[in-house]
């Protein structure tokens, strides 16, 4: 039938087909044909509807979740970043570099920010030993010291905080340099592009999560 290019009619297909070798299957055939005709498309539609709900209700990135939103927006995982501001025991402001932690977990949270999981992450950060992230600080300084046009193009409204990262067990460091937080604030941001002014900026997603005694 399809060989001649004729149109497929699901209603005709729903009639029982004869397969003498499998009598048990024969009784199932009408439902199997209906399932084969509409089943995969129904699954696709249900998954896509769930994805749309999750994007608008739970800040899931449109790129993921099976709704065919890839390449539709700049709002994808690598354009989302966590800002982790901390306060050490002396009350000094710090910024925690999450790049040094469990990357897969952080990626998952950037794709779909689960508030309970972010609160758990914040609590873990309060219990964790932190060390100065000298490598990252050098990179920022090098960036600042490069081309004049680059310095002119990037506008900062606040002074950068001291960068720290989670201490991994294999790192040997002077115990005096180890820091602990008394408060932490986590917020998720996404990159935005203003095409008229050709300007990149950040937009916060949802409310920040605060743990500890934040002033």
């Amino acid at each position: 039938m399809s060989g001649s290019g004729a149109r497929y009619n699901p209603e005709i297909t729903a009639t029982p087909a004869t397969t003498p070798s499998r009598p048990a299957l024969r009784t199932l055939l009408p439902s199997l044909c209906t399932l084969a005709t509409w089943g995969p498309a129904a699954v696709l539609t249900i998954v896509a509807l769930l994805q749309i709900v999750m994007v608008y209700r739970a800040d899931l990135t449109p790129w993921e979740g099976g709704g065919f939103g890839m390449f539709s927006t700049l709002d994808y995982e690598t354009n989302r970043r966590f800002l982790v501001e901390g306060m050490d025991q002396k009350g000094e402001g710090l910024q925690v570099n999450l790049f040094a932690g469990d990357q897969r977990r952080h990626s998952r949270l950037r794709i779909k920010p689960d508030r309970k999981e972010i609160e758990r992450l914040a609590e873990e950060l309060l219990q964790t030993e932190l060390i100065p992230d000298k490598q990252e600080q050098v990179k920022v300084r090098l960036g600042m010291a490069s081309a004049w046009r680059l310095r002119k193009a990037v506008e900062k409204q606040s002074a950068p905080l001291k960068l720290v990262r989670v201490k991994s067990p294999d790192v040997e460091i002077d115990p005096k340099e180890i820091l602990r937080l008394k408060a932490v604030r986590l917020s998720l941001w996404r990159k935005k592009f203003d095409t008229i002014n050709c300007r990149l900026s950040w937009e916060r997603i949802g409310q920040p999560v605060v743990k500890g005694h934040w002033p």
Binding site: L83, A153, Q157, L161, R199, L200
Partner: peptide, 9 residues
């Protein structure tokens, strides 16, 4: 740079 109040043209 930390995300937030920073823009780039």
């Amino acid at each position: 740079l930390p995300p937030g109040a920073v823009t780039a043209t």
